[in-house]
Structure formats: structure tokens, C-alpha cells
Computed example of a mutant assay.
Amino acid sequence: MSRIADMLDAVEAEGRGAFVGYLPLGYPDLRTSIEAAVTLAENGADILELGPPYSDPVMDGAIIQEATHTALANGFRLRDLFPAVKEITERTGVPVLVMTYWNPVVQYGVDRYADDLAAAGGAGLITPDITPDAAAEWIAASERTGLDRVFLAAPTSTDERLDLIVRASTGFVYTVSTMGITGERAQLDAAARTLVARLRDHGCEHACVGIGISNADQVAGVLDYADGAIVGTALVRALRDGGLDGLAATARGLAAGTSA
């Protein structure tokens, strides 16, 4: 069973694609970040992707790095993750994936992390900096707890690597739209479409595309060939510049692209 795959199937049955929204936990403070996640869910996000701040966010662009540094400076600690996820899932019913670098999971303890996330109602992990062949402990823990494990595929991935990623992932494969760090881009790399097609050839049932998506037209374009569009930087910018009201308006605008 996969709560994420079930959600993607339900969205498809409605004749549209999924809007996956990312926000960093603890930004600008823990309480506001919880309210922001609830706001996102109430304004069109089908799946929430929440990122505990990390001191060395190598994949994140400037806006998300700024937000995570603020969250850490304001006192966010990993122990805050699980109560936050619990409150968000109880208030929204929207499945929550945690986007985390691997070192905090190891430091916390892989089995302990999986148990605490499952107990909090979380749906699984997106792990950008660990590959399936190095993730045996996490794969075992996720199978034991029923959590989804979302690995990343990039345009540079070999066919052998894509086959491994598809077999190891549950929920969906996080399809990196373009090489580089997160951030808004005027035009998405056409390599994303090719990559999703390659993933389908390897038996991938669900592929969601992220990095660089920032408006409803881009959401609609991605959903022409993928199951979900992942948006992060545009939402963090909206929260930073417009608070919860600005975030709600941006989320509604992006969600409009799911049925375009």
C-alpha cells in the first residue's frame, strides 16, 4: 500500500494531475510553518513536501537556503519535525512527505526516524542525496513501517540507474527537470519530458517533476506528460513576501494549472 500512489491515482481519476507543494519547516518560525502547510493544503496542494532545515542544503537555491538558514537561526531542531507533521496531517488529511538530506536521518537513527515519522502520520521520505544501492537500511525500515520512499532521477541517469530507481521507489519517482539547484526558471528543460518517457519505459507508474516550476502554465505543461508537478521556490517566495495570504493566492494560482 502507498498513500502517495493512492492520492495520485485519485487525482488522475478526477481527470487532472497532482500539485505537490514544498515548504521548509520552521520558516519563518515553527508555528507559522505549520499554518503555512495547512494553508497550502487548503488551497489546492494534493501532496505536501516538507523540508526540515539542514545546515548544508547542497541542492537548494538561494531562496530556500535563506529560508532554511532563518529556520535554524530561529531554533528549529529535528525533534520539532514529528509533532509538526502530526498536527498538519491531523488538520488536513493531505499526505505529507518529508524531503530530507540523509545525514540527519542517520544521526537520529534510521529505524527510530521511520518509526517516529509513521507514528506522526507521515507518508514517507524524499531523499535527494542517497541512491537506492546505498539505502538498504532505509528500504528495510520503510517496508517495515509502510512509508513511501521517493528517490530522484536526473536527465544524466543511465538506463541501469533508472531501472534501479524505479524498482526501489514507491509513491513516485522524483524527476529532476533540469540539472542544477532548485529555483524558478523562465523555461523548463525539455529533458524532463524525455526523462519521464525513459522512466515509463522502465516500468515507472508515477513520476512527478520538480525544480524550476513556478507558474500555472508550467504546471499544466508538466502534467501533459507527468503525474505531478512539484513547486517549491515560488511558494517559499510567496510566504516570504506575502505571508499566509500571499501563499494561499499563489497556491490557488498554481493549482489552477492541474486541470488546464
Score class of each variant (00 low, 15 high):
Asp111Val: 08
Arg77Ile: 12
Val11Asp: 03
Leu97Ser: 10
Ala119Tyr: 06
Phe151Pro: 03
Asp148Tyr: 03
Glu12Ala: 14
His69Asp: 14
Thr258Pro: 02
Met179Arg: 11
Ala45Gly: 08
Tyr101Phe: 07
Thr131Ala: 12
Phe19Asp: 04
Gly257Val: 03
Leu195His: 08
Ala73Glu: 15
Ala119Glu: 15
Met179Gln: 10
Phe82Thr: 07
Ala41Leu: 06
Ala256His: 00
Pro28Gly: 04
Ala119Ser: 12
Ile64Phe: 04
Ile47Ala: 05
Ala5Leu: 15
Leu162Gln: 08
Gly243Phe: 14
Leu72His: 08
Gly93Lys: 07
Asp80Thr: 06
Ala73Thr: 01
Tyr113Gln: 09
Pro53Asp: 07
Ala120Leu: 10
Ser55Asp: 03
Arg16Glu: 02
Leu254Met: 06
Asp60Glu: 13
Arg149Ala: 14
Asp189Met: 02
Asp6Ser: 13
Gly124Ala: 10
Asp6Thr: 13
Tyr113Val: 10
Leu235Arg: 11
Leu164Val: 14
Met99Asn: 11
Ala134Gly: 09
Asp217Arg: 04
Leu97Met: 14
Ala41Asn: 01
Gly183Ser: 05
Ala207Asp: 04
Gly109Tyr: 07
Asp9Arg: 15
Ile88Trp: 01
Ala13Met: 12
Ala154Arg: 06
Ala36His: 02
Asp217Pro: 00
Ala153Glu: 12
Leu81Thr: 14
Ile211Thr: 15
Gly203Cys: 12
Tyr174Thr: 10
Ile63Thr: 15
Asp189Lys: 01
Ala119Gln: 13
Gly228Ile: 08
Asp245His: 02
Ala134Met: 15
Leu162Cys: 07
Asp129Pro: 01
Val110Ile: 15
Ala73His: 11
Val236Arg: 00
Gly44Asn: 02
Ile34Pro: 09
Leu244Arg: 09
Leu72Ile: 06
Leu247Thr: 04
Leu25Cys: 01
Ile181Tyr: 12
Gln187Glu: 14
Ala207His: 09
Ala123Met: 07
Val38Leu: 09
Gly122Leu: 01
Ala197Phe: 06
Ala154Gly: 05
Ala140Thr: 09
Thr89Trp: 12
Phe19Leu: 15
Ala45Cys: 10
Ala119Asn: 06
Met99Val: 08
Leu152Gln: 02
Met7Thr: 13
Gly21Thr: 07
Gly61Leu: 05
Ile211His: 08
Ala255Trp: 11
Ala114Met: 08
Arg79Met: 06
Val106Arg: 15
Pro53Ala: 05
Glu14Met: 11
Arg252Glu: 14
Leu199Val: 03
Arg193Met: 09
Ala168Ser: 15
Glu42Thr: 02
Asp201Gln: 12
Ser169Ala: 10
Gly21Arg: 07
Val236Ser: 09
Val219Asp: 03
Asp159Tyr: 04
Ala62Met: 14
Asn74Val: 04
Ala140Lys: 13
Asp115Arg: 14
His206Met: 00
Val106Glu: 12
Leu97Glu: 01
Pro53Leu: 04
Thr89Gln: 09
Ser55Arg: 04
Asn43Trp: 01
Gly212Ser: 07
Asp116Gln: 14
Glu143Ile: 03
Ile126Tyr: 08
Ile126Arg: 02
Val105Cys: 01
Trp138Phe: 13
Leu25Gly: 00
Arg3Thr: 10
Asp80Leu: 06
Ala255Ser: 07
Leu97Phe: 00
Ile34Met: 10
Ala154Met: 08
Leu48Trp: 06
Tyr101Val: 12
Arg161Gly: 01
Ala136Tyr: 11
Thr39Leu: 00
Glu184Ser: 15
